[in-house]
Nucleic acid binder design. Sequence first.
DNA 1: TCGATTTGACCTGA
DNA 2: TCAGGTCAAATCGA
Length: 326
Amino acid sequence: MERGLSWEDNTALVAELTQGMECAKQLCAALHSDEPSSETRHFLLEKILASYHKSLLLLKPPPESSISGDGSSPSGGIDKSRDVGRNVTKKRKLMPKWTEHVRVGTENGLEGPPEDRYSWRKYGQKDILGAKYPRSYYRCTHRKVHNCWATKQVQRSNGDPNTFEITYAGAHICGQTPPMKQEPEQNIQQNDDDLTMQTSQALMEFSLNSDDFEGKETMCHFSFPQTLLTDENQPFQTLRKVAGNYSPTSFVSPATTDSNYHSVSYQEASSFGGVHNLHHSHSSDLTDLFSATTSSTNSPIVGLDCTIDLPNYDPNFLFDASEFFP
DNA sequence: TCGATTTGACCTGA
DNA sequence: TCAGGTCAAATCGA
């Protein structure tokens, strides 16, 4: 796939990855500052995902040239709109996904699902088997204008009606400039040098998830103290170190077959040596799953858990930033 | 009038 | 075959 990349594509790819790395740096800084706004982090997260998304599209352009914002498609006697729908479905599989568990406090007067900074348009609602509450489907309002394919699903938790499980798919590429919550005394400007951990929330969890290991969802869950990131001026390299040391066979627990969820400390992950083992034997889809637990003290959002799912990426694609940034 | 929501039907993938 | 996801016509509301 990476073969045959034109110089222009290569340049664009490097630019996207560079942007992603910058955002990762900012996110890293935000995580270690007393920046209380989970929205800031979320915003940076989405920017990183957008960079990944665009980069992967560059690496893996859709086989059909029919995916376009105007809905044009090679008509083959099938209803045009449905044809577009199929392309969307195919594309959906390529979209990075992540899930947030958001608790809203009724004391704050919030009853409905929590709002984020983007404008969403509801396009469907479905009763889900075994779920008490229906699932709502939203897509970016600017889908047509900016060809932005970000979607989200909002599902109220069975057990706790105050908890919403929000699954985002695809990052916003619509160029929306969400109104960041500006704290008066806080400078949202990310300070790369200020990596002092000031919050009590000391754990950041990364997970790698591959859902195609013989059809089984395999997940590797990393947890490590944020302090260990403070000496990392290359957050991408940090991620690469962690991800690169991920070896499915190293973590698979024999106890479970359908879902393997493992937690290792960053030290453990680091101790696996410099073997970048993303070139594992599975050649199909690789799903990366990122889970970050954050706390928010001054927000109606009581709890927030974030899980990222990047499906269908070629596992042989190893992002080695050092090639681009010696 | 126009944009957002609702809802039944259709499509896809497991 | 069925559950989940999406579409689009109908409806609503500003």
